[in-house]
Design a binder for these strands. Structure first.
Lengths: 348, 348
DNA sequence: GTGAAAGCGCTAACAG
DNA sequence: CTGTTAGCGCTTTCAC
C-alpha cells in the first residue's frame, strides 16, 4: 500500500486518490466541488490531501475549465501613489475570494493596455482597468469580449466604478470662491485622460455658476516634474488660485513656486486631487480631494466577481450595465489658506 | 478547405495546423521551438497563425511543461513607496523577457509569504522576495525547493541582490559627526526586519570608530504614523541627530517634531533611508540614502531568469550562490543642515 | 523535416 | 454517491 510512502514528486490528484482508495474523479469532487459527495469520504479525502501536502496545479485546472483564478489589474502608472490604495484594495478583496492579481503597469499607453489584455488573455479570468486610456467605444467592445470592469472611469455599457471627482472639483471651486478668488486656473492632466476632461468641465461649470473667471493650462504629464512648467504657465494666466488635475502635479507646482519665491497660499493657492501619500506633509500641506480608493477597489473586485459568476451561469448582460459612483470630499490644508484674500475682485 | 473560414471559437493550435495543412506537432514546433524545422514551413505557419489571430493558451502549455511564464513578486507592503521602483523595474525587465508578474502584498507577515508561495506554486515559474520576513534558514530551504531570488537581502546559499545600506549608514554617521554631532540615535524598524538589525550594527560600528555616543529607540513599524512615537522617544535620549530605519519613519518624525515645535535641523537632525517619493518635498527636505532600486530590481530579474534557464538545462547549484551588492549614496538635504553645530561636544 | 501518438493534471459528462 | 471515460490545448518522444 502506498498510504505511507509519499510520492517522490509533487503529489498529484492521482496520489491523493489512491492513498484514499478512491477514483481520481471522486478526489477531484471532494476537493473542488463544494457540497457534493458523501461528507465522510469527502472529509477523509481532504485530510489525506492535507497530509500528503497536496496542492492543485492550477494550470491544469485552467486547461480543463476556463478558470485561472487570476485577475489582471491594469494600472497606468504604478509609480503614481494614487494606486497604492487601489492595488492594496484589489489584492485584499481578491485574496479573500481565492483569487490572485496579475499587476500590469501600462505606462499610460492604450496600445500597451490592449496588447497586454490580449497576450495574457488565457492567464486571467477577468480584468480591472484603472484609469484606462482607451476610448469608450473600445472599452465597450472589449467588455463584450471579456469580463472587465473599469475603475476610475464611467463607461456606458461597461461595469464601472467611478470616483466622482467632478463633484469634488465643484466644491473646490466654491471653496476658493469663498476665500475671495476671482480668477481660477485649471491645470490639465494628459490629453488621453478621460478624467482630466471631466474635471476641466466641472471647474468651468462651477466658475460660470459663481460668476468667476477661469482658464486652463496644460496638458501636462501627471508627474511632479511636470509641475514646474505648470506653475510657470499658471503664474502667467493672472489667476490667484489653481486647481490641478492631481496631487502629483500640484506638489510639483508647490516645489516650483517655492523655488521662484512665490508664496503659497498668499500669492497663489493650490488645490490638488486624490489626497495621495505626501499631500499631507509637503510644504505647505496640500488642500485636496480625498478619494475613497480602497473602497473603490473593493467594489470593482466585487463587481468583477459578480460578473464572472453570472457569466458562468449564463445570465449575460443584465446587471452588467451598472455604474457605481463614489463621492470624494474636500480636505482643506494650508495650500489654500484660511483667511479671505485681501483684494477680492482681483481688479488692479 | 477551412483556410478562409476562421473558427467560431478562439483559434487553437489545431486550427492553425490545418489551415497550414500540417500536423499539430509541426505547428507547435514552428511556434514554440526556436531554430528547428524547415525555415519555410516555419515562416508560413507563423504567418498563418498571425492571420488567424492565434494566441497560445498559456495554461495548457503549463500543463504540458512546467512553465507558466509568470513570476511571483512578493512585497512586504505595496503601500511603501520604496517598492515603486522595484515593482516598475521587475515589471519592465520581466516583460522584455516575455514574462508577467504576479504581485503579492504580504502585509509584513512571514506566514503570508510562505502560504502565498505555496498556494500559488503552480502559477509561477520563479519568485522574487523583496525584504523577506523569513529567516535565513527558511529562505535557504525554500530556495532549494523552488527558483527564487531575494531582493534587498543577502542570504548565504540563496541568489540575492543586496542593497548595501550599511555602507550608507556609515557615511551618514560620518556626515553627522562632521557637522559636530556627538550623540546619535538609531530609530529601529520592525524587529523582523533583517535590514534593520544590519543598519543598527552599522550605526553602532561607525559611532564607535568615530568615538561618538549612540543609542537606539524602537522597534517601530515602518510607517509615517509610527514616526510620532519615534520622535518623542528620540527626543528623550538627548541625541542631537537621528538616523532612521527608513524614510517613512523619518518623515513621520519630521511631522511630529514640527508639531512639537522642535526645529529641524537646528534642534534635531534627521537622516532617512531609501530616498522614496516625498523625501525631496517634505518639510524640511530629507537627507537620506539613495538606493538604486530599479537597477536592483532588474538585476534580481536577470538572476532569476538565469536560474530558471540553468535549471531547465540541469546545472543546478553552481552560480546560484551568488550575492550581488549594490551601493547606496548619501543625498544631503536640509534635514541635516549645512552649518556645523554651535556646541560641538554636546557637554552641558 | 514531419507526423502519429502518448501524455501533462485536472474536470465534467455519463453510467452504474 | 462513486467510478469510468473522454477530453482541455499543448509539448514531446519516437518512428517514418
Amino acid at each position: 500500500m502506498s498510504s505511507l510512502t509519499p510520492p517522490p514528486h509533487r503529489p498529484t490528484l492521482a496520489d491523493v486518490a489512491d492513498a484514499a482508495g478512491v477514483a481520481i474523479s471522486t478526489a477531484s469532487r471532494a476537493l473542488a466541488v463544494p457540497g457534493r459527495g458523501n461528507p465522510d469520504t469527502r472529509e477523509r479525502i481532504i485530510r489525506i490531501a492535507k497530509d500528503l501536502g497536496y496542492t492543485p496545479v492550477t494550470a491544469s485546472n485552467a486547461s480543463a475549465t476556463p478558470s485561472t483564478r487570476m485577475v489582471a489589474v491594469l494600472v497606468s502608472d504604478v509609480t503614481n501613489p494614487f494606486y497604492f490604495g487601489i492595488i492594496r484594495g484589489t489584492q485584499q478583496a481578491l485574496r479573500v475570494a481565492g483569487y490572485s492579481q496579475i499587476l500590469v503597469h501600462t505606462e499610460e499607453s492604450p496600445e500597451m493596455e490592449e496588447s497586454t489584455l490580449e497576450e495574457l488573455r488565457s492567464s486571467y479570468d477577468g480584468a480591472i482597468l484603472t484609469a484606462s486610456r482607451l476610448s469608450d467605444e473600445r472599452l465597450a467592445e472589449l467588455s463584450a469580449e471579456l469580463p472587465l470592469v473599469a475603475l476610475n472611469r464611467a463607461v456606458p455599457g461597461v461595469p464601472s466604478v467611478f470616483i466622482d471627482t467632478p463633484l469634488g472639483f465643484d466644491q473646490a471651486v466654491e471653496h476658493l470662491a469663498s476665500l475671495g478668488h476671482r480668477r481660477i486656473c485649471y491645470v490639465a492632466g494628459p490629453p488621453t485622460s478621460w478624467a482630466s476632461n471631466l474635471r476641466w468641465r466641472a471647474v468651468a461649470a462651477a466658475c460660470e455658476r459663481l460668476g468667476i473667471e477661469y482658464t486652463k493650462v496644460g496638458p501636462y504629464q501627471p508627474r511632479t516634474k511636470a509641475g514646474a512648467a505648470a506653475a510657470d504657465a499658471a503664474l502667467n494666466t493672472g489667476a490667484t488660485a489653481c486647481v490641478a488635475f492631481n496631487d502629483l502635479l500640484a506638489i510639483g507646482m508647490l516645489i516650483r513656486l517655492k523655488e521662484r519665491g512665490v508664496r503659497v497660499p498668499e500669492d497663489m493657492s493650490i488645490v490638488g486631487c486624490d489626497d495621495i501619500f505626501g499631500a499631507d506633509f509637503c510644504n505647505p500641506p496640500l488642500t485636496t480631494l480625498t478619494a475613497p480608493v480602497e473602497q473603490a477597489a473593493r467594489l470593482s473586485v466585487s463587481m468583477l466577481l459578480d460578473r464572472l459568476q453570472s457569466e458562468r451561469i449564463g445570465a449575460s448582460a443584465l446587471t452588467r450595465r451598472h455604474i457605481a459612483a463614489l463621492p470624494t470630499h474636500l480636505t482643506v490644508r494650508e495650500s489654500t489658506g484660511s483667511a479671505p484674500r485681501r483684494t477680492p475682485g482681483g481688479e488692479s
